[in-house]
Design a protein around this nucleic acid. Structure first.
Length: 417
RNA sequence: GGAGAGGUGGCCGAGCCAGGUUGAAGGCGCUUCCCUGCUAAGGAAGUAACGGGGCAACUCGUUCGGGGGUUCGAAUCCCCCCCUCUCCGCCA
């Protein structure tokens, strides 16, 4: 939810327009907000009157009461209609205001998809190995998508042997790295209520991407971001305690609706995968520093895994409603001859906290916290990149050096027999 | 899954059965001041959040788990939902 009070600020409006919000809609929301405000004045005036009248009845003598009660009933009728019109206005305003995105930050480039700015490039663009990740995964006996399809359907896979070893090595390595940066590790629930999905900003916009457990009114999260957003929901935080940095490990479930025929090979895009996600609650003044910290960590992970990548400052038109700025880290995928997204990090400013009602107590009143999130390790996809970059000519897999301590020291893994 | 108890301000805890100066007693904590020759004890005052109006003093509204309802009036009565605790059952 945007800050309606700032709707009159030109920079606020232009930041939204750069993300594709129409000036028309913005003006409509502003006008509706003014209407709502005058309706509020009228409503509160009537409520005050009604309260006064009712209190007087309590003090009145028994003989006086019948007449006073009758008079109060008249006020009640007027109040009811004022309440109805205010409620209608407020609902309409809310529905429209929810369509407005948080304004893009000034450092975000204009444009839409594919118009982001590459802000860093590390490593080269090596040629494709003999086998692409899908074939190599099968060759190693690590990934079985046929079995996954048989048991659960397309876009499901079994991981065996070395893939599992690598998964836990990646996770442990990342958690150690993050804990050293004062992130608190979390294993959150992966089934959450509808209200949590709404508050975290996934509903209604992404509802079609989410699996629902209809029998219990619960939803499988697509990312740990959803339950992590709930950690401080409705709380009043103390400025000195911030930032709170969390890293959640969870399975993630995505319906991947509308992606038929896209990324069908291997486990690049699957319905279920595990992920380590970073989430930060920050003071408003320092959230941009925290955003850079998230990027720094994501880059460090790729640097140490020695994967070639580029960092993209996503263009305004390609940002989601909640993000004021987003970096994507894209690793070179040799078999496709292209950079593909592996991690990303966003600063939501107060957009999400407003809905979550997480505030920071201050001297005069309180302010909304800022929230940020970023991917640390998307396991399945990371395995895809590793299987291409660490594939050897003899059909073996070389374990990335930083992961060896977490793999019992082995340097190489041969195909499973 | 069965049975019962309960959710009140930063915390504890009255009020609910008999609806009306109760936004809510009392206590703890916290803040300021007083006293005290010493980080104790005692005394006084203050101390919810959110939204609106006002330069301000201040004032109006909303909030007693959440949502509906009854009523002139609901923390108090009715309905639905959520959560916590206890006992039994089941179980990794």
């Amino acid at each position: 939810m945007i800050d309606l009070k700032r709707l009159s600020e030109p920079e606020y409006r232009s930041g939204m327009q750069r993300k594709g919000a129409s000036a028309d809609l913005i003006g409509q929301v502003a006008a509706l907000n003014d209407q709502r405000h005058s309706a509020q004045l009228e409503l509160e005036r009537l409520r005050a009157e009604s309260n006064t009248v009712s209190k007087a009845i309590g003090k009145a003598s028994p003989e006086e009461r019948p007449a006073k009660i009758e008079a109060a009933a008249v006020v009640k009728t007027a109040l009811a209609s004022a309440e109805q019109s205010y409620g209608a206005l407020a609902d309409e305003l809310k529905a429209l205001a929810l369509q407005l995105p948080v304004p893009a930050h000034e450092s975000v480039p204009d444009g839409g998809e594919d118009e982001g700015t590459v802000v860093a490039t590390v490593g080269g663009t090596p040629d494709a190995p003999p086998m692409d990740h899908a074939d190599f995964g099968r060759h190693l006996g690590w990934v079985d998508t046929e079995l996954g399809a048989d048991v659960s359907g397309s876009r499901f896979a079994y991981l065996f042997g070395g893939a599992v070893q690598l998964e836990f090595a990646l996770v442990q390595w990342a958690l150690a790295k993050l804990m050293a940066r004062e992130f608190i590790p979390v294993v959150p629930p992966v089934l959450v209520r509808e209200q949590m999905m709404i508050d975290a900003g996934f509903f209604p916009t992404d509802e079609h991407q989410v699996y629902g457990i209809g029998s219990d009114d619960l939803y499988l999260v697509g990312t740990a971001e959803a339950p992590l957003a709930g950690v401080h929901r409705g709380q009043r935080l103390t400025a000195e305690d911030l930032p709170f940095r969390y890293c959640g490990f969870s399975s993630c479930f995505r319906r991947e609706a509308g992606t038929y025929g896209k990324d069908t090979r291997g486990i690049f895009r699957v319905h279920q995968f595990d992920k380590v996600e970073m989430f930060i609650w920050s003071n408003p003044e320092t959230s941009w520093d925290e955003h850079e910290l998230l990027l720094e960590i994501e880059r460090e992970i790729l640097d140490e895994l020695e994967l070639p990548y580029q960092v993209v400052n996503i263009a305004a038109g390609d940002l989601g409603g909640a993000a004021a700025k987003k970096y994507d880290c894209e690793v070179w995928l040799p078999s496709e001859g292209a950079y593909r997204e592996v991690t990303s990090c966003s600063n939501y400013l107060d957009y999400s906290a407003r809905r979550l009602d997480t505030r920071i107590k201050g001297e005069s009143g309180s302010v909304f916290a800022h929230t940020l999130n970023g991917t640390a390790i998307p396991v399945a996809r990371m395995l895809v990149f590793l299987m291409e970059h660490y594939q050897q000519a003899d059909g073996t897999f070389t374990v990335p050096e930083v992961l060896r301590p977490f793999c019992g020291g082995i340097e190489s893994i041969a195909p499973r027999k």
